[in-house]
Amino acid sequence: MKFTRFANPHIFVLLLVSVELTLFLYRIVFVGKPPSSVREARECLHLQTNTLETDDNFFKRLWPSLHQIVDKCSYRHFRERIKVIGSSKQSILWLNWLVDLNDHQCNAIFIHNSKSVSMERELKRYTKKCVVYSLSDKHQETSRYQDPRYSVLTLKQNVSAKARHLGWGVDHYARDADSVDLAYFTVVQVHKLRYDSINIFYDGSEHIKSLFTKSPFDDANLATCQFNIILNRPKGRLARRDFRYTWKRLLYDRRYLVAGVRRIRGSTDALSILLLNISEPYCWAKYISNDPFVPKNV
């Protein structure tokens, strides 16, 4: 076996440096940067939940352990930047990042069926720049025209996922005179197309479907950065099948990341879910990363 001898040691050092530089350039050009925390979380969720088991077995396994799976895959990446807004009975998870910049205009909607606005007021104190809307059919009056810099804007309104409409015209109320659909409300009544947070405090299994591709939100060009929603325990075979379908859409749609799941205190029949918008560059820059939005990282 022959060995190469270097008369000058500097040549050997230069050769090693050249090899290291070549490997470094190769990684940048052909391999790229390490996967982002979002991409890593999505891959973990796919690995943990994308199985071939039956709908019933999928539900029996996933429902009691979903909060643990999401904590392992997603929540750990954002834990240090998430604040709990509200009380132990009713609260939301708020992911904070660059929302205090001067050019940031924050809009948040709370949808529930109670009179209380305690969560809304706490969010208002925490992020003073946010315009906070509170929708409930239990509110006594509408304070829509109060100064949004200091007040929570309450609206006596019932938002229903079943209050569908064929267009944006006056025939919207033909099917349900007492309810308004979420996409219709955000576009027509609030006149905003981009929201930092929408929070729904009753069964939101139908509202989640409004967020997918070719959905009412997509058709109306609406974007929400954070989505807190209560999901009730599916009852019956069809509901369990729908639960699995919804979960698969969340995984494959590449629109939202399931970033947090919490059990509702004192109940095993409801979960609180935090979704983060990972496809909107504005949401990515304001809440997820201060690096530019790159599609391959999601």
Rank of each mutant, 00 (worst) to 15 (best):
H10M: 13
L15C: 11
L16M: 12
S18Y: 08
V19L: 15
F24W: 08
Y26R: 08
I28Y: 11
G32R: 10
K33Y: 10
P34A: 08
P34K: 06
P35E: 15
S36P: 01
E40K: 14
R42T: 01
E43Y: 11
E43P: 02
L45T: 01
T49H: 06
E53Y: 06
D56Y: 11
F58S: 07
F58C: 08
F59A: 00
F59R: 00
R61W: 03
Q68R: 12
Q68I: 11
R76V: 04
F78D: 00
R79Y: 11
E80C: 04
R81L: 05
G86Q: 06
K89D: 10
S91M: 03
I92P: 01
D100W: 10
H104I: 12
H104T: 13
A108G: 08
V117Y: 01
S118Y: 10
S118L: 11
L123Q: 02
R125A: 14
K128V: 12
V132D: 02
Y133I: 05
S134P: 09
L135V: 08
H139Y: 09
Q140T: 08
E141K: 09
R144G: 10
R144C: 06
S151G: 00
L153F: 09
Q157V: 13
Q157S: 12
V159S: 07
S160L: 03
A161Y: 05
K162T: 10
K162S: 14
R164A: 07
R175C: 04
D176V: 03
A177N: 04
D178F: 06
D178T: 04
F185H: 07
T186H: 02
Y195T: 00
Y195M: 02
D196F: 04
N199F: 01
F201D: 00
D203F: 05
E206C: 08
E206K: 14
S210C: 07
S215C: 11
D218A: 13
D218R: 08
L222G: 02
T224W: 01
F227L: 04
F227P: 00
I229N: 01
I230N: 14
G236W: 07
R241D: 05
R244L: 11
R249L: 14
L250W: 08
L250G: 10
Y256Q: 02
Y256S: 01
L257P: 01
V258L: 13
V258A: 06
V261N: 06
R262M: 08
I264Q: 12
R265F: 07
A270C: 09
S272L: 14
I273S: 04
W284N: 11
N290C: 09
N290T: 05
P292Q: 10
K296A: 06
